[in-house]
């Protein structure tokens, strides 16, 4: 078992419990990714990382989500579906832009078929760099998002 995952996960579990009193619902949205990020998001749920044991649950609908995990530079054809998914997510909601493309547009930024990075369409709370980010980096990014939520709650 990976120790860094283990440590991060334990910290996360406590934070999630304090903040929500239940699991954190995450909806993943591929807004134009090459599917490299999807490989790593899927790796989060294998028996080695198994994020469910830390109270992180990948949910089937944005209606059940506390957080949107968005990958890819947003394509022209995914602009509307992304905005609709954002609107369908109940507030308060967090948005995490995962991977270089979601954060900055990556190598696709100048394309006619790409609208731009995720924050050009919806507000983003946390950016996770990497192409793709390793599973540990995703968990770390989710933790940073929780920090921000806690700060906002205390304000």
């Amino acid at each position: 078992m990976d120790e860094s995952t283990e440590q991060l996960g334990k910290q996360l579990q406590e934070r999630i419990h304090q903040l929500f009193g239940r699991s954190l619902g995450i909806r993943e949205v591929d807004a134009g990714s090459c599917n490299g990020c999807e490989v790593e998001v899927n790796a989060l749920t294998n028996a080695i990382h198994d994020i469910e044991r830390f109270g992180m649950h990948i949910v089937a609908s944005p209606r059940h989500a506390d957080m949107l995990l968005v990958t890819g530079a947003v394509t022209r054809n995914m602009e509307m579906p992304l905005i609709k998914t954002y609107r369908a997510t109940p507030s308060p909601k967090m948005v995490v832009a995962m991977g270089s493309c979601a954060a900055s547009g990556g190598p696709f930024l100048s394309s006619y078929a790409v609208v731009g990075p995720v924050d050009s369409l919806i507000p983003v709370d946390v950016y996770i760099p990497g192409c793709p980010p390793r599973p540990q980096a995703i968990i770390h990014g989710i933790m940073v998002a929780l920090d921000l939520l806690e700060e906002a709650n205390n304000r």
Binding site: E38, A73, T75, N77, M78, C101, F108, S110, S111, C131
Partner: peptide, 29 residues
């Protein structure tokens, strides 16, 4: 077509050594 990113057009603007980086991001897996 939802994830159409215009890869073929982009490739025409990329020097060969950068094209390798783009090629790796056509389909991540």
């Amino acid at each position: 077509g939802y994830v159409h990113r215009g890869v073929e057009k982009l490739s025409e603007t990329m020097p060969y050594h950068k094209g390798v980086i783009l090629a790796e991001r056509i389909s991540g897996d």
